[in-house]
Design a protein around this nucleic acid. Structure first.
Lengths: 202, 202, 202, 202
DNA sequence: AATGAATGAGGGTTCATTCAT
DNA sequence: GATGAATGAACCCTCATTCAT
């Protein structure tokens, strides 16, 4: 228990540092000092430096999924059509990243291009998000709620890319925006993909 | 001239390696061996390892802009309305990344999260792409060709994110897809943002 | 305490080596081997090679001042006139260098012409010695105990130079002279400057 | 002939650089650029870097001896007693260093502590100066012109040290002193050692 | 004789990891 | 469990010297 707290504390310090300085620029000694423990203590909780970063990524994935689970309270009926579910998840993800910019920065910037085991864990998140989108698109297609002429593969990627960039934008780049309205944000985001940006009488 | 060739050759080897292994995983000795020169020779052409990477990024930016310049041959008239210009640039950028996956990988994955001077050069590309998009949106708005109720800031980020992810997808992830039809790809991409994915009679 | 000992031990080895081989001829690996520690251990105690040498010079200066402080036991009265103070300090400095030939060699030979931070620390010693001499000369002048027609600036330099060369001679060049009589040495030195080398009835 | 000029020119540049930056801080490329020749050209005139420095020191020694040779014009008679000869040589050496501060700096500061072959060449100068002094003292002693109770070894070192420091002071430290009166300087220097700094009725 | 690109041995420094206390 | 001194492999970079042209 006490031990678990210590581990969490080290991870928290590591998160801040990795986010601020990147993986290779962050030394074990930085983490150790920030956490206020001795150098060797780190190695009682983690196998090595990689392990810290991977644990961080796995926690991120776990926490994100916890955020996703649950249902939108209101409008339980609409939930059935899949669109509301999708919107809810988009909303929760926005919230998740906006409320933890370090996680956001680590997943969408710092963690990329590191190679090795890291790619695997990051790909896990990526795949999950993409599958979620694709699932929505496919079921929407089947129900006639989505245009039949779209290129699923492409649109999936587009939505994923657009979403991640926005998450990064609102979570990291624009750090000091006081209070984001996640519902409105999500509505705007979804509407753009739903109806396009051309006037209706195009 | 001979000297310029040698520099280019070193850069080419470095590009492949950085793309495949990442910045920190690539040693000077890797580059040196790949280029078939002695260790010290590298330092006759570059100040240090950073310099190689930054030069690579600057060349990337330069080459990309060269790809953008020029006009679509056919349909010169439509070009006037800005939409064709935008589409042309999207198309050229797709082409640029698809034809040079290493550049693509370095810019959109490997180079991120390195910090230092690298961020500056990468941000240059990013800003350029975003400004290009925003410019198109603003002029389209003024001409009534784009819905007046969109959130410019958000849509700009969405298009940028969607585009980069696609470029990465077609350039790197799906590396071995023989022959991409850039015109069709661009058309699909643009249409999705233009008309949305919902059926017309929504 | 233990740590302080280790640092001292490394410094001691470095002193011997720097004195024997010079700054640039002494490698970190020489010091490391002489001290019987691993390469990296050196860097736990010193920022870099420069730092070792500068620390050495600063210790030298500190130790020398410690040697100077204190008063000649006997003849406390004569001490008042300044001459005895001066002689005592000359004596102590002779002693200091004769008993630590490595310090002597590092300060008066090895450390010269290195430039950088080193000059600063060496100049500190030099200035101190010169100021000490000048102070004695000026107060002697005021009290009528020194000829009024001497060129202070020149004589200061002469005494300083003569003294340093002698220190080097007795400390380093003539390394193995068993037992120096510092009192006699000082007496000779001072008398030469006091009365000159010409016969009295010149 | 042309070749000899080229060699001289390289040496001249090397002298300036070695004096300003020290031996190890001066790179072959510095010398090569300053001399306006290609890197490889240096090695057609000198075996290696050491050779340049040693040549410089040997030229210095040669030029100094040239400066010493010759006789004081006036007072040819006094010349016989050795004192005038000694004074003349002191004077010429002052002049030599004051007129070539780089030589002065190289011999009395930069060249010390380098070890290797350099010590040998520098020692040559040193020994010459000391022998000159000792010879004067011994003959003065024999002729009763110098106090019989002085410690020859010590006084020799004192005069040598005092002299070198002064030469350095007037040649390097006080670089910008307009016009030195070498006769007066020498007179002051010699008188200090001759009669001492105490009042006559001590 | 002159060039300057190429060389590579050699040095300083970093930093994740270990282990005796 | 906690500590932090010690470790040493690994890496970047310098720079005197060579040699084909």
């Amino acid at each position: 228990m006490k031990s678990e707290q210590r581990k969490t504390q080290i991870l928290e310090c590591a998160k801040t540092l990795f986010s601020a300085k990147g993986y290779y620029q962050t030394q074990i000694s930085d983490i150790q000092q920030a956490a206020g423990v001795a150098r060797g203590t780190i190695y009682q909780y983690f196998k090595n430096k990689d392990d810290i970063f991977v644990t961080l990524l796995e926690n991120l994935y776990r926490d994100w999924r916890a955020e996703l689970s649950g249902r939108p309270e209101r409008n339980a009926k609409a939930y059935e059509n899949g669109f509301e579910v999708f919107k809810f998840r988009i909303r929760q993800t926005f919230k998740f990243f906006a409320e933890d910019p370090d996680y956001c920065n680590i997943l969408l910037k710092v963690g990329l291009g590191l190679g090795g085991d890291f790619d695997r864990v990051i790909a896990q998140f990526d795949r999950h998000l993409v599958e979620m989108t694709k699932y929505y698109l496919l079921s929407g297609l089947k129900m006639g709620r989505i245009r039949s002429d779209i290129n699923i593969e492409m649109v999936t990627n587009m939505i994923g890319g657009a979403f991640m960039r926005m998450a990064f934008y609102y979570g990291v780049t624009r750090k000091k925006r006081p209070r984001l309205d996640f519902d409105a944000l999500t509505e705007d985001f979804v509407r753009t993909f739903a109806y396009g940006i051309f006037p209706e009488n195009h």
